Simulated scan of single mutants.
Amino acid sequence: MENEYLKSTTRKLLNCKGGVDTIGILFNTDIEIDDIKGLNGILDKYTTITGKNEIVIVIKPSQSINGGVELTNVKETLAFIEEIKIKLGLSNGTLKRIDFAVDLKEDFESNKKLFRLLLECLNLKRNSGGMYETKKPVLENRNTGNFKIMSKRNQTTIYNSSDKNRLSETRYENRILDMRSAEEIKKRMSYELKKHIKELEKLEDLVPIVESYYINYLLNEYNKGINKNFRTFTEFIAWADYEGLILTENILKELLKNSGLKSRFITFVKNFKRLRPNSLKLTSKTEVKKMLVKLKKALKDLIKKS
């Protein structure tokens, strides 16, 4: 059921908006977790005692301010932290965790290949452990839950948010954990935002490398599976496309080139789509670049409004 804030606003974002989702603050205090349970805007599940007279209080400002419908800006976030401090009698804390996000109007299901390719590029830049896809339960038709890359300190996720009371179809979320900063909270937030914006610069230049990885993987799968799991090259492409692995035209061209078939690329695609009209919805380096422009603008606007 939609909350009152959602009813009073436009249901979907016109473009995209950046904001703070969750923030964790380390306080030196002997307060117990039971003393703050149930307080609106505090996430009990993630709030932890980390040492003697130390507690990390994890806060989701939007939960209190607008029912979680819309991300909060830096000013709103800092003001809410002050409210918590006054309410609990806490002194200044230090930043331990920050989740900032961008809410997008783009439909997740229609843009899964774009989001996968973008995260694969970011994964390469970070040299992380790889991008993976989660699946929802069978009762929810096993649709994609989210795309995620993660390292010890950084986690970046793109997921479908259309089923939530939010002003977006898709959320891009970057989480930074285990921070040990003595800087003033606002200053550190700005630093982390600028650092991620820089990380996104020219990320599209890594698309050819990602394509080469997918080509090599798929050719290996084709050679292993032909005449066993797949009767024909077309059957193999149908499987790979269903799995969301044929991301770009370049990947498909290289697969066809190495398949041994004599068919021209345009002819193959035309015949393939004639029987499968909703197939081979591909993305590109250009689309990745356009999405990166949106993400960077939203994050830069968040800094400006702080």
Results as ranks from 00 to 15, higher is better:
5 Y>H: 08
260 G>Y: 00
7 K>Q: 12
6 L>H: 15
161 S>D: 04
266 I>M: 04
182 A>F: 09
203 L>Y: 00
138 V>Y: 11
170 T>A: 10
264 R>E: 14
165 N>I: 11
49 I>T: 14
209 I>K: 15
132 Y>Q: 08
234 T>K: 12
269 V>C: 01
132 Y>L: 13
256 L>P: 03
299 L>S: 03
26 L>N: 14
154 N>W: 02
225 G>H: 06
158 I>P: 03
226 I>T: 06
179 M>F: 02
7 K>D: 04
271 N>G: 09
7 K>Y: 09
254 E>W: 01
160 N>G: 07
106 E>L: 15
234 T>S: 14
302 L>E: 09
255 L>V: 05
191 Y>G: 03
16 C>V: 01
250 N>Q: 09
64 S>P: 00
99 D>S: 07
111 N>G: 10
296 K>D: 00
73 N>R: 04
15 N>K: 08
151 S>K: 05
293 V>I: 13
131 M>C: 12
261 L>K: 13
181 S>D: 14
208 P>W: 09
13 L>H: 07
37 K>C: 10
143 N>Q: 13
246 I>S: 05
162 S>L: 06
52 K>Q: 05
81 I>F: 02
160 N>I: 05
105 K>Q: 09
220 N>E: 11
39 L>V: 10
258 N>R: 12
21 D>E: 15
124 L>K: 12
247 L>Q: 07
243 E>S: 15
173 E>W: 03
236 F>W: 04
227 N>T: 09
253 K>H: 01
168 S>Y: 03
175 R>T: 15
79 A>M: 10
250 N>E: 14
52 K>W: 05
216 N>G: 14
221 E>W: 01
206 L>V: 02
60 K>Y: 00
281 K>C: 03
26 L>Q: 13
69 V>N: 12
84 I>Q: 09
159 Y>P: 14
280 L>K: 06
71 L>C: 12
157 T>W: 00
256 L>F: 04
267 T>I: 11
30 D>C: 08
174 N>K: 14
193 L>Y: 04
276 R>I: 02
176 I>H: 05
65 I>M: 09
296 K>N: 04
194 K>A: 06
49 I>Q: 15
206 L>E: 09
105 K>N: 13
